[in-house]
Design a protein around this nucleic acid. Structure first.
Length: 476
RNA sequence: CGGCGUGUGGCUCAGCUUGGUAGAGCGCUACGUUCGGGACGUAGAGGCCGCAGGUUCGAAUCCUGUCACGCCGACCA
């Protein structure tokens, strides 16, 4: 059934997905553009989503033993230079501070694009003994990467994120932590954001600058493009060797630590928008929605209507509820609630009050139901749970329906020409082959999933013996 | 960094071709009527036309330069 478009101000997805995204971001009042390209003003509605993400994710981090810290935002050039692959990866996109007040600095400093080097420099002096390990630190901060092409949430020059940096006594422990955090991210996405993800390892070409191995969660947007939604890296002892982070182990031997880092950014808000949104605007999963229920009074100037609305708000005190008592017409308020993605609304007017009922309407399906006022609290609680699980189910169905397979080059090319989504295909493991695929098909490897399947014995592109099954896609 | 596009009240834009007193709709303020899917009336406020030069008696309009932003590519969370 074609969805009836109620709000003219939002471009429909099918017409122009990029414009739809921009419209939603603006109409849901998540951000405003600022005077600096690629730097956005995150408005209350957007920031509240981030606050909830922080809160819910931080709880999960802490449960695994993470402690929060804060590192400086400036990195002296000499420090950034220490790990070769790392500098090469980030140098093209760092912003430099060259002056302190009126005077040039002796050594210029970059604004952190990520804080590996700062953590390493700190760990070097902080870790001496196996008793000091593991170090499981995380920081919530913003970082700066001077991107050429910017888009709200998806790619901004300054963005908010968390970056965890850990140091361990053994390679095994580091690997365990790397996978553990990837799982924390994946579970968070599914359980809180209702976004199903594919977990796997990045190829050598796509891995993080300086990492031994990079793991990723990949989500599929409504338009069939992939979004890397979180990453977890195992550094082995590469950074430790570059920075000299050594400790004395139980056997009295001097050893290098093994490190990890992992991060999730405000980009994930872009994923929420593009996985769940529709032509009427944002659709927020109840778990993360800053406001879960909007009560909209009808004929609010009539005696008793507003009082009843406030009474219902108080009755629903165990949820995040607001009353829209603004001067606008009900129709306006409906549209507003929908554009902002508030999962549910309660309509209450004189007719309802007389009949001892109200109308509830869920944002995701726009289905309306009449509910007796004395059943409201119970019904709202159940419905919010239903919305959350339905949203995940729908997103999962979309992911499954847009995941294809290809076993030879012709099939591979055809599926990308005709469809938009993930394509599972076997790969030889050669970098040159991956580069050719990117060059010729504008498609990148998203990950080598943990759940491997054997689709055929030969590489989908070059026909050489296959080593891995890979998810391919076009990505944001 | 390449390609395209746009800068005129808070927002969306018209006006520019052919130079001659800055416009519309929406929003905003006040009052009144309304209210179950973006209601209406009346009255008001609000603009060195992105910036800098130039041409001209006269520039939003023509010329030159510049800045900013948006979109699409290459690179990235």
């Amino acid at each position: 059934m074609a969805e009836k478009k109620l709000v003219e101000a939002i471009t429909s997805m099918s017409e122009d997905f990029a414009q739809w995204y921009t419209d939603v971001v603006k109409k849901a009042e998540l951000i405003d553009y600022s005077n600096v390209k690629g730097c956005m003003v995150i408005k209350p509605a957007g920031y509240a989503i981030w606050e909830n993400i922080q809160k819910r994710m931080d709880e999960r981090f802490k449960a695994t033993g993470v402690e929060n810290v804060y590192m400086p935002m400036f990195i002296p050039e000499s420090l950034l230079q220490k790990e070769k692959d790392h500098v090469e990866g980030f140098a093209p996109e760092v912003a430099w501070v060259t002056h302190g007040g009126l005077n040039p600095l002796q050594e210029r400093m970059c604004v952190r694009p990520t804080s590996e080097t700062l953590f390493c420099d700190f760990y070097k002096g902080d870790i001496h003994s196996y008793r000091d390990l593991p170090r499981v630190y995380n920081q919530w901060c913003s970082v700066v990467r001077w991107e050429k092409e910017t888009r709200p949430f998806l790619r901004s020059r300054e963005f908010l994120w968390q970056e965890g940096h850990t140091a361990h006594a053994t390679a095994g422990e580091a690997q365990e932590r790397t996978e553990q955090m990837l799982n924390v991210y994946a579970d968070f996405c599914e359980e809180v954001l209702a976004i199903p993800v594919v977990k796997g390892r990045k190829t050598e070409k796509e891995k993080f600058a300086g990492a031994e191995a990079t793991y990723t969660i990949e989500a599929l947007m409504h338009d069939g493009k992939a979004l890397q939604s979180g990453t977890s890296h195992n550094f082995g002892d590469g950074f430790a060797r570059a920075f000299g982070i050594q400790f004395t182990d139980k056997d009295n031997q001097l050893k290098y630590v093994h490190q990890t880092s992992w991060g999730v950014s405000t980009r994930i808000i872009g994923a929420i928008i593009m996985v769940h949104g529709d032509d009427s605007g944002l659709v927020l999963p109840p778990e993360i929605a800053p406001t879960q229920v909007m009560i909209i009074p009808i004929q609010q100037k009539k005696e008793g209507v507003l009082d009843k609305a406030y009474e219902l708000r108080d009755k629903l005190g165990s949820f995040r509820v607001k009353v829209d008592d603004s001067d606008k017409s009900p129709g306006w308020k409906f549209s507003e609630q929908e554009m902002r993605g508030i999962p549910m609304r309660v309509e209450i007017g004189p007719k309802d009050i007389e009949a001892g009922k109200c109308v509830i309407c869920r944002r995701d399906t726009r289905e309306k139901t009449e509910v007796a006022l004395d059943k409201l609290e119970e019904t709202v609680g159940e419905l919010l749970k239903t919305i959350q699980s339905d949203m995940l189910a729908r997103a999962r169905k979309h992911l499954e329906e847009h995941t294809y397979t290809a076993v030879n080059r012709e099939e591979f090319e055809r599926v990308f020409a005709e469809k938009s989504g993930f394509v599972k295909a076997m790969w030889c493991g050669e970098r040159e082959c991956e580069e050719a695929i990117k060059e010729n098909m504008a498609v990148t490897s998203r990950c080598m999933p943990f759940e491997q399947e054997c689709l055929s014995d030969t590489c989908v592109y070059c026909g050489r013996p296959a080593k891995k099954m890979v998810y391919w896609g076009r990505a944001y």
